[in-house]
Design a protein around this nucleic acid. Structure first.
Length: 137
DNA sequence: GCCAACGTTGGC
DNA sequence: GCCAACGTTGGC
């Protein structure tokens, strides 16, 4: 099983909105970046991901799960972009902020830190475990 | 609100 | 196919 990180501006699509979609989930649509798209193409049903709020909040706030593998993005009329469906699993008892991640030396290689603009990114098993622990899971 | 990073577009 | 111009994202 692989781990990922999904980033969103809460004003556009927030964790609360994701939770309201329930177990059937929602298309992670609107991504118009090839690297992010390629990551989504690699995802398998059951893969886990972090849900990160960018903008003012800058924190990992919850855990999501891939419920539908890569398919054409219904909001893209060029046919170039695909997306997966994800569903909220559970919130982090204690959100892990970007500052927390940056303060942790063993998370210095996280793409979140090194390439802040990439909206869909892979997370290593070690990073996953540590961020979960920091978040109170 | 500013600016750096970086991805995309379009002219050549 | 290269590269300059431009637009967008996201941290500060």
């Amino acid at each position: 099983m692989a781990y990922w990180l999904f980033k969103s501006e809460p004003e556009t699509w927030s964790w609360d909105m994701q939770v309201k979609k329930g177990k059937r989930g929602q298309e992670w649509d609107g991504v118009r970046n090839y690297t992010a798209r390629n990551h989504m193409r690699e995802m398998k049903t059951g893969d886990q991901g972090f849900f990160y709020h960018s903008g003012g909040e800058r924190a990992v706030v919850g855990i999501v799960e891939v419920v539908k593998e890569s398919h054409p993005d219904s909001t893209d009329d060029t046919g170039k972009f695909d997306c997966v469906d994800i569903a909220a699993v559970k919130p982090l008892p204690k959100p892990v902020t970007l500052a927390d991640v940056k303060a942790e030396p063993s998370l210095a290689e996280m793409i979140l830190v090194r390439q802040s603009r990439l909206s869909v990114q892979p997370v290593t098993a070690a990073e996953w475990k540590l961020v979960c622990k920091m978040g109170g899971l």
